[in-house]
Design a protein around this nucleic acid. Structure first.
Length: 420
RNA sequence: GUGGGUGUAGCUCAGUUGGCAGAGCACUUGGUUGUGGCCCAGGUGGUCGUGGGUUCAAGUCCCAUCACUCACCCCA
């Protein structure tokens, strides 16, 4: 046997209905909020991610699947969707039609991390991006949208973490203050943080090691350093969320792992999934379109971790087993050909039909019909064939009615209609 | 990349101080000549993750290795 690759997984027929239900719910909500779908390639030039996500991020440094293409250019399996959506916005000149674009996309992402609960090397995201709107209301609306989706799916135990990361005007001052503080005293920091403090000092803020939290207890908070515009923006996001009754907590330690974020950053966390508790996350990235050689347009987006969401929803959503309306039990070799014709006719008529072509004993066929959860069994043996009338058995009531072979599909259609 | 846990039938798992590889479920046949679930009786199914080692004898002890899994890290 050739097994699948580490960190990858099969999504089996018993699980796909939950995926489908989540996707359908998400799509309905996106449409209500004016979003349209965009479908993008799974591979892009490595450079796209290096420039957007940032060279010094874990994703780009060690988690991307990158390989040379036929012309020697480096190609990467996308680790996230935003870069591709921004690329398409620029390359297809969507902004020329209308700078305001509200887009969503669903698909697999790839990161070469060590697999664990809620973390796979191929994982799925639903992501939404809005271009051309800098008003704080759209920030709040995205959070409302994500929250509504989770609520409609019946997910509980969630919290919205909210922070503002400032902008190029005010973030440098904060970074300086943080660097000064770290330079003054680094005693007690873990090895990781000692390494991080120079390269990416913001990351020290969200370290989980208790000693580091203690050291960082009195660290400066970005929200204290926001410039006037950023502060006003952030406050408007909060008041909007309050009006919409979205519960959130301000988390000055919420830092995004991708370099492009500005201003609003948020994450929706669950308490039911172990260590991988982020179910959705995103934020504003006003500088990215310009940085990727596009026009100066603000943007904001978020992504939902579908695998994690599926796990949450599976815990509560009742699983309806797949069961046929009609099970054709055809006894003996010579009737199989008839059974085939009938199964085609019923299937074409839109009746969920299962047929057993094994020619086994009626007992064995009935047993199988029961196992697959058939509502009705169409019994066909030499007697029925001779009489030109089949027997339709209701598996719940055990009632059996005759069904003439002539005009059988209509008879069954009518019967099923009356039955419901 | 680092650490912990687990690998025995399709599934869930027993397996004693080293001594014939098991149970339940599932599958299959029959009890019931052409009627499912429940019950009863039988049957199929194993490279005990893999490779070495110790031993008269290894699922069991030792070494290595692989896989899965949880956690660190990171993130959705």
């Amino acid at each position: 046997m050739i097994p699948l690759i580490r960190g990858f997984k099969d999504i089996l027929p018993d699980e796909t209905p939950v995926w489908k239900a989540i996707e359908d719910t998400a799509i309905a909500i996106f449409q209500s909020f004016g979003f349209r779908e965009i479908r993008l390639p799974i591979v892009e030039k490595a450079e796209l991610f290096q420039r957007s996500i940032g060279e010094n991020t874990d994703i780009v440094e060690k988690e991307m699947y990158t390989f040379p293409g036929s012309r020697g250019e480096m190609i990467t399996l996308r680790p996230e969707a935003t870069a591709s959506v921004v690329r398409a916005y620029i390359q297809q000149q969507l902004y020329a039609r209308d700078p305001v674009q509200k887009l969503y996309t669903i698909g697999p992402m790839f990161r070469r991390e060590r697999p664990q609960k809620g973390r796979y090397r191929q994982f799925y995201q639903i992501s939404a991006e809005v271009f051309g709107i800098d008003a704080p209301y759209i920030d709040a609306q995205l959070i409302v949208l994500a929250w509504t989706l989770l609520e409609r799916l019946g997910v509980t135990g969630l919290s919205v973490q909210l922070n503002s990361l400032g902008c190029p005007a005010c973030r440098p001052a904060f970074k300086r203050a943080l660097a000064d503080m770290l330079a003054a005293g680094t005693g007690g920091l873990c090895a990781d943080c000692l390494r991080r403090k120079d390269k990416n000092p913001l990351r020290v803020l969200d370290c989980k090691v208790p000693a580091c939290r203690e050291v960082m207890k009195d660290a400066p908070s970005m929200t204290d350093y926001l410039c006037e515009d950023c502060a006003r923006h952030f406050s408007k996001v909060q008041s909007s969320l309050i009006r919409q009754q979205i519960p959130f907590v301000l988390n000055p330690r919420l830092v995004r792992g991708l370099d492009y974020y500005t201003r609003t950053a948020f994450e929706i966390q669950t308490d039911a999934l172990g260590a991988q508790n982020a179910i959705a996350g995103g934020g504003r990235y006003d500088g990215l379109v310009k940085a990727l050689d596009g026009p100066e347009q603000p943007a904001i987006g978020f992504a939902i971790g579908l695998d994690r969401l599926v796990e949450l929803v599976s815990q509560t959503m009742p699983q309806k087993p797949f069961s046929p309306d009609i099970f054709i039990a055809a006894m003996g070799e010579e009737i199989q050909e008839k059974a085939f014709d009938w199964s085609c006719a019923l299937g074409l008529a839109g009746i969920k039909t299962e047929t057993d072509f094994s020619g086994k004993s009626l007992k064995a066929l009935m047993k199988r019909a029961d196992r697959v959860g058939a509502e009705h069994v169409l019994i066909a043996g030499s007697q029925e064939l001779e009489a030109g009338v089949l027997v339709l058995r209701n598996m719940n009531t055990k009632e059996q009615v005759p069904v003439p072979i002539d005009g059988m599909v209509n008879h069954i259609k009518q019967y099923l209609k009356d039955y419901q």
